[in-house]
Simulated assay, not measured.
Amino acid sequence: MKLLVLIHVLSAIIGVGPTYFAHVLLRKNQSLDELRSSLRVGARLEIFPKIGGSLAVLTGLLLIWLGDYGSFMQIWLFGSLVAYVLIQIIAIGFATPYQKKLGGWVLDPANQKASNLPAEQLMQWIKARKYFYGASAIGLILFIFMIVKPS
């Protein structure tokens, strides 16, 4: 059971962790070249939430099924699951599409000589950042639920 808890905690950290990197990667006031680099790194980090997050959900459900946690409706269990689902919806459903559209323009060889972002891409950058901040805030709530386990 301890091994399952270890796998669950590590996969949760690895799965949600890259959401916090998005703030650094999409930070304000970086040059277009820095943004290009950041978007390349961000594309590589996408694998971690997919694998780590999926493993965290599976091990979490397995822990509930095998463990002595009582009712699934305990606030921390239900809240953790809801928070995780919200993070995925925000990050994958909202932030990532804006990030990909931005990356499509920024990384397009035809735009390599550009020195500034056009208004549309600037809005995509801002929206992606805002959604990642929202996902990170919910991630903080998720970790609080997992650590404090309010009843």
Rank of each mutant, 00 (worst) to 15 (best):
T59S: 15
K101I: 11
I64T: 10
L4F: 09
L6S: 10
G53N: 00
A114Q: 13
E46Y: 08
A83T: 13
I90H: 03
I7F: 13
V82P: 02
S38L: 03
P118F: 10
L6N: 06
Y69K: 12
K50D: 01
R44D: 09
W125A: 10
F48G: 01
L107F: 05
T96S: 10
Q112M: 12
I75C: 10
G42L: 04
Y69N: 09
K101E: 14
I87E: 04
I147Q: 06
A83D: 13
L45D: 07
N29H: 10
K130Q: 14
Q112T: 07
L32M: 14
A22V: 07
I75K: 11
G52Q: 07
H23R: 14
R40V: 12
M146R: 05
K113T: 15
R27S: 05
G17R: 09
I75P: 00
L61Y: 10
L66V: 00
S38T: 02
I87K: 01
I90N: 04
F132K: 04
I13R: 06
L26D: 00
V85S: 09
A110G: 01
N29R: 08
R40T: 11
L4S: 08
V5S: 13
I64L: 15
A83E: 12
R129L: 13
D33N: 10
D108W: 06
K130E: 10
V106W: 05
L32G: 05
R40A: 04
I90G: 02
M123W: 06
K28P: 03
L62Q: 05
G42W: 04
R129G: 10
H8V: 00
P49V: 00
L142D: 05
H23I: 08
N29C: 01
V9F: 00
L81I: 10
I144E: 03
G17P: 02
I89P: 08
L4T: 14
V82H: 00
M1G: 03
I87D: 00
A95N: 01
L55M: 08
I144C: 07
E120K: 15
D108E: 09
L142K: 07
T59Q: 09
L81V: 14
F94N: 00
G79V: 09
K101V: 11
K2D: 07
R27C: 01
S115V: 13
T19V: 06
A110H: 06
S37P: 03
G139C: 09
I92N: 02
S151A: 06
V24S: 13
M123R: 15
R27Y: 03
A12P: 08
I14S: 12
L45V: 12
L63Q: 08
I47F: 00
A137D: 11
A95K: 01
A110P: 01
M146H: 05
V148E: 05
E46R: 15
I147K: 06
V9L: 07
V9I: 14
S54P: 07
W105D: 03
V82N: 02
N111L: 09
R27N: 02
A137H: 07
G60N: 12
A137S: 14
S71P: 02
L6F: 08
Y69F: 15
R40K: 15
I47S: 01
R44L: 15
G70I: 03
A119T: 11
W105I: 06
A83P: 12
V85I: 15
L55W: 01
L140R: 06
W65E: 12
A95R: 00
I126P: 01
K127R: 11
K2T: 08
S71K: 02
A56K: 05
K149E: 07
H23Y: 12
K100L: 03
L39H: 11
L122V: 02
N116M: 11
